[in-house]
């Protein structure tokens, strides 16, 4: 069996002035990958390309070792999806919506679906359009989990959810992974969600993958450097991915902690960069190549 449940290599997509450039990432079986980035960074586009809702310009997307373009039906049987705008029918009940969706999946488990609706406190007789955003997400999740999917794709699943259900959702995803063949890819801009359950983190910025690595690797490599203004020269700036000036000196983001340590020694304060720091400096700081 292939080692990776999802492999993306050199993915390109250009449209409407937006370009997804050379995206590559891999998720091994049994792991959770969180995809983070600002709004408009390209997270949703990547998920839509994986689901073949958009046609890629070039590159490859392999799920379960096979290309989705050639094995779309078989692959989609094994994918559960939760989109940020759940695509179910507004004016029919949850039960009727589920009946429609269930027709497409050979492994649909009605008993488990009913059980999930009960757990999520959703009435099967209620119309989908009458649900709150959080309830819609719950329904989407119940559908995604009810056909024994091996890979769950979720686009901003926690956006608009209350903290209680956000935690519940993350715990449920964690439980899902007790089966070490199942994996999850979810996009978010809530960094704390990733810190709770993601094994791998992929950072997308302006259509490019800045990094795709394990949480530990990200913690070891990325740091925030704080020091006096006199230390910021053209040469030292090249070490940083972004910086900002403050009243007392500079603060900069760096993706090579060792290099910074050997260049500055004890002249600067080096702190482990949080995902929020990385997002902030790449989006708002002064950028460097």
């Amino acid at each position: 069996m292939n080692e990776y449940i999802l492999e993306i290599e050199g993915l390109h997509k250009k449209r409407n002035g937006f370009e997804l450039k050379d995206v590559s990432l891999r998720i091994p079986y049994g792991f959770v990958m969180g995809m983070i980035g600002a709004n408009g960074a390209g997270k949703t586009t990547i998920i839509k390309l994986i689901l073949n809702l958009l046609r890629r310009d070039s590159g490859s997307i392999r799920l379960f070792g096979r290309d989705i373009l050639e094995n779309e039906v078989e692959i989609k049987e094994r994918i559960g999806f939760v989109l940020d705008r759940p695509p179910y029918y507004d004016d029919i009940s949850l039960r009727a919506n589920a009946r429609i969706v269930s027709m497409f999946y050979r492994k649909w488990n009605q008993h488990y679906f009913d059980q999930l609706l009960e757990e999520f406190d959703l009435s099967p007789r209620k119309k989908f359009g009458k649900l709150s955003q959080g309830q819609k997400m719950k329904f989407g999740l119940a559908v995604a989990l009810s056909h024994d999917a091996d890979l769950i794709l979720m686009d901003e699943p926690t956006a608009g959810l209350d903290p209680v259900f956000r935690r519940e959702l993350l715990e449920r995803l964690g439980n899902l992974l007790l089966d070490d063949k199942k994996s999850v890819l979810f996009s978010t801009h809530i960094t704390s969600d990733l810190e709770k359950i993601a094994d791998y983190i992929t950072f997308v910025h302006d259509g490019e993958v800045v990094f795709s690595a394990t949480r530990e690797e990200v913690g070891e490599r990325w740091c925030v450097v704080k020091g006096g203004r006199e230390l910021l020269t053209a040469e030292t700036t090249a070490l940083f991915r972004g910086h900002r000036m403050s009243q007392f000196g500079f603060e900069a983001l760096c993706d090579d902690t060792q290099a910074v340590r050997s260049r500055f020694g004890d002249d600067v304060v080096i702190e482990r960069a949080s995902l929020e720091d990385i997002m902030f400096y790449l989006n708002k700081g002064v950028h460097h190549a």
Binding site: E74, K76, P87, I100, M103
Partner: peptide, 20 residues
């Protein structure tokens, strides 16, 4: 009409020559 036809839903599910 998206909300009537459910185009996105139909594109997400495995649906080649499905009975529905």
């Amino acid at each position: 009409e998206e909300r009537f036809h459910g185009w996105t839903l139909m594109a997400c599910v495995p649906q080649k020559r499905n009975a529905y």
